[in-house]
Design a protein around this nucleic acid. Sequence first.
RNA 1: GCGGGUGUAGCUCAAUGGUAGAGCGUCAGCCUUCCAAGCUGAAUGUUGACGGUUCGAGUCCGUUCACCCGCUCCA
Length: 532
Amino acid sequence: MTETASDNTTSVKSMDDIMALCKRRGFIYQASEIYGGVNGFWDYGPLGAQLKKNLRDAWWTDVVMKGCNGKLGPDGKPVSIVPLDSSIIQNPKVWEASGHVGGFNDPMVDCRETKSRYRADHILCMGVKGDDSGQIYAFIENDDKSFDGALKKLSKYKKADIAKDGVDICSFTDLGPDEIAITVGPDAKEVGTLTEPRAFNLMFKTVLGATGNAEDNGAYLRPETAQGIFINFKNVVDTTRVSVPFGIAQTGKAFRNEVTPRNFTFRSREFEQMEIEFFCHPDESKAWYTFWRDWRMAWWQELGLEGENLILREHDNDELAHYAKEGAGTADIEYMFPFTAPGYGELEGIADRTNFDLKQHAEHSKTKLDYFDNTRGELAKNGQPKGERYLPHVIEPSAGLDRGVLALLCEAYTPDENRPSGVFMKFHPRIAPIKAAVFPLVKKDGMPEIAEPLYNELRNRFGHLGTIEYDVKQSIGKRYARMDEAGCPFCFTIDSTTLEDQTVTVRHRDTLDQERIAIDKVGDFLAEKLGF
RNA sequence: GCGGGUGUAGCUCAAUGGUAGAGCGUCAGCCUUCCAAGCUGAAUGUUGACGGUUCGAGUCCGUUCACCCGCUCCA
């Protein structure tokens, strides 16, 4: 579908071109490239590292420090969020409680026809007793209906009425590839639609201790940052002065051993998440879900992902995750990447996780995770509420940082035949890795002597936000072209007029317009453009 | 995991089984007064990796790794 889309739609950008620019300009490299690379991992170069930091910082500032940029919650009060930085490796029981180990540690069998997935050790197979010729019929263990179905199909196949005790039964896991090829799956009509058993645990395993072994000292790299928040819920409630509703936020690496890493950094095995777990009273979860869904969408739009490339999509009931019960909301913020067009790829998911996670951890850890809310409950004689004890519900806006960076790169990539570079990166100034460049028009007549102090001034004032570039080499056009590909929004050029009236040229990346401003106003100009 | 395709300098690509090259970019110097100008010079490759055939392999064969496309997968 991608092929036809790029062939027929001129508006779809070329992913190959974007990847080439990322390499050429130092945004993203293949990990371990000089050793031939390693599937599913990527390194961020100088510009990419700063771009990624700027996006992470924007999220941290807007979400955590400013509490949704000061937008009031559905309760009419400021949104309360506290930060957290939990460990990548946790007690393995965390992942049992969360459901990451149990259901997904065992070899699984897929049916290509019915699209069902079974645990391999839960499937049994039957054939006519003493007759090992012909097709094998699979059914689900301890499922009479499934057994009867298989027996019926076997009878039809053998053109004989076969009794319940007239069959040999063996485990599916004992079958070889040749036998699987002649096996008919549960509820399947065709033969050979079952896959061989495959382990589907996507968690990275590691060993604790220098002399440890995998059996006794095995541990997992976290497959998501969320659980680190849930298991610290009690700590945060006990040691800080938060009260429900409030959120805990963290950014950090997570690891999933994806079967097929694909599409540049979109699906990689090591990735960084930006997650909020927002705890609220069960009665208010719907209002908070709506609040977060809409505000997160608006946030991405503010960073430059405007227009039709970004959509908000509510999940259908049949694609709800294991933790989201029916009826509770789940929505994706999706971006139309060149490799998904005309479809979309997930950037952030907003899910009503109900009290699933806290309940699981309360049970597995045998720790009380109830929250005592002294603003609720009926009034006591003294007029104060008696309080209410409950397990908070959780709204989870979970964003992929690497995917965000990729979306920003794709969105920024703008071919333009009318400029020497042929392309420029239209980053929002707040996100741009290089904030500004200072250029003496030529390397003489005292221009460098004026440009250098300006460079130092801007670097001191804005260096914490990103790179300030200074370059005296080669023609001015070449320097502008380089800044176009790096996505630097503003270039300040010192020329002969500067020597006379202390003004500099501001060169705007997007419009190629030039204007003159006083050299001592450059800092304020940049501050305003960067939103400070 | 399955099927198809591709790997030569930072990028785009050449090279009949016979000396690994060009353009662009990069770097240095000169020049240059607003959009990759010009001149001079320089650096850059175990031809993805390993093995085989051959007097001789970028080229042929095998294996492997990585990337791209389609399935599969994405809790």
